[in-house]
Amino acid sequence: MFLIECPWCGPRDETEFSYGGEAHIARPVGGGHDMTNAEWGHYVFHRTNPKGLHRERWVHSHGCRRWFNVVRDTVSHEFLLIYKPGEKPDLPALPKSPEPPDGPGR
């Protein structure tokens, strides 16, 4: 279970939060009425789902009920950045894993 640092309440268990999917997907201005079906479909349904760093939204639903953004490494589940809506700091460099001493296990 993750330990998530709410920008307003501090570190709390994952069970207090809800996941809100990929961050920074802005609603098209005007509601997308000048978009093609494909463009609109992309906004509604398509997400990047990366292996590695992922900007995503969380809400402290059983706490202050406020939304915030994080950068999470989807491999290690490390939360590298936590920031408020409206902000967008640069992605941090991924920490490099050292090679295991006796060669990699599989």
Binding site: S18, G20, R57, R65, R66, W67
Partner: peptide
């Protein structure tokens, strides 16, 4: 929650 999500984000 739906209202809050749109209002906040």
């Amino acid at each position: 929650g739906w209202l809050e999500e749109w209002l906040q984000t």
